[in-house]
Design a protein around this nucleic acid. Structure first.
Lengths: 247, 247
DNA sequence: CAGTGGTCTAGACCACGAA
DNA sequence: TCGTGGTCTAGACCACTGT
């Protein structure tokens, strides 16, 4: 009576994982077709695809319909820096970084009105951003600023404010406090296709709300990142040394 | 030539999702067996299981091997409060909250030594915590404190420090700064079984490092939460009103 | 034991990408 | 057109939970 048998697809995944991490399979290389791999391992294609699915979730393999399965180039991990509201300097300074920004004016609806604490239908400036490096999508952002608080300069393509969007930075008047809520979830179909990730790969979502000293919400941002490519880091300075763990 | 046909399992998932969100299926209720559901929808069990898998990822359904599929009671979302290093007060005050804590002394190895910035093999106090409310697991934590910085009181079962573990709070001497790195990933097999979640459901992982004013690392914590049950919130106060979005 | 979910198969057909 | 991944089936067998 030894232990129970581990699922077959775990074995396959482990084998492929090792071949990738040891360099036996090179980054960018195409794996043999699923049919061939299935025959080689003497398993069905369904089982093989389960194994590949796990590796895709780990960010080791990229599946491209009609082309094949590819060993993913180890992406530099992007760092979202909380409080500052931007990508880390190394990433932000990356010359290959492109950003597509689309701006428009929309009425506040539902959750947005709640987030920004404005009446339903208030005009908001909306900025939709996609951060792109080469073929890789780093993340997408939708940033909302009340229309009457939107700096005019942001509409100029070359303004500093506009450039700030490259790093998902905070817009609008200087905030007094920034609150960021982080959660993880499966991607929506939209996000899944926009970020070119599978429906299995989780995303890291950040909801950022910045408030000025008068308590007005000056900006709300909905940020979505591929979970396997991004970390978020938050630093807290405890200015007042008080014991904080006591009841 | 209308659009392409959506995958069948999407339809099934959408139908079940609606039945759950509209209350047609009550929380805690057991769904018909997969065999029955598959027959009812006239699909194979494999396809049905795909649909259920999606719902499980969304936190709507809980699968229990040998018993059935159940509509998940809408769990209060737990909030991990960054900087403070604890669960939100409402959760922390929950009387039904139990915590299993196991403490031991381990030598610093590999990543731990790097995180804590201590020599390899230094003695560390390790606290393994599982937070439990009823049948639900909120998260698990492994907290490490250099042995020579460990308050003796923490070994008492009733001390305030010990109680603090209930909320995953910071241990050890008062830190000057706390840095928390948040990422999402698929659960390890260990975490998957410990938290009773599927291998598809992503987890939210927080690595917390606290440093005192002398730059010594006084605590490192590895926290893992089921992604669908926990948000992490971080608040930043911008004491020095400087424009931060300019280049 | 019976009933449940978990894994797997062999083969069919569809959708995408590059000729 | 061909080769690729994507979806689906019908049925088999295994593993877990309760009686």
């Amino acid at each position: 009576m030894t232990g129970t048998v581990p699922p077959r697809h775990h074995d396959i995944a482990a084998d492929l994982r090792q071949q990738i991490t040891t360099g036996r399979l090179q980054p960018g290389e195409r794996l043999p077709s699923e049919t061939v791999l299935a025959q080689r391992y003497a398993i069905s294609t369904v089982t093989l695809r389960r194994a590949l699915s796990a590796l895709q979730g780990e960010g080791l393999v990229e599946k491209i319909h009609g082309k094949g399965n590819f060993v993913r180039r180890p992406h530099r991990k992007i760092m979202y820096v909380g409080g500052w509201g931007t990508l880390d300097p190394w990433t932000a300074a990356e010359p290959a970084l492109r950003v597509s920004v689309r701006s428009s004016t929309v009425p506040a609806h539902g959750d947005l009105a709640t987030l920004l604490n404005v009446p339903l239908g208030s005009p908001l400036a909306e900025f939709s951003c996609l951060s792109i490096e080469g073929e890789t999508l780093h993340g997408l952002a939708r940033i909302y600023v009340p229309r009457d608080l939107t700096p005019a300069a942001v509409l100029d393509d070359d303004s500093a404010d506009r450039q700030a969007l490259t790093r998902f930075a905070v817009l609008g008047p200087q905030p007094a406090t920034t609150q960021e809520t982080v959660c993880t979830r499966p991607p929506t179909p939209d996000e899944s296709s926009a970020l070119r990730i599978g429906t299995a790969a989780p995303v890291l979502a950040v909801t950022r709300v910045s408030t000025d000293s008068a308590g007005r919400v000056v900006e709300a941002a909905l940020l979505t990142f591929p979970g396997d490519r991004v970390d978020a880091v938050f630093t807290t300075h405890h200015a007042n040394p008080e014991r904080q763990t006591s009841a």
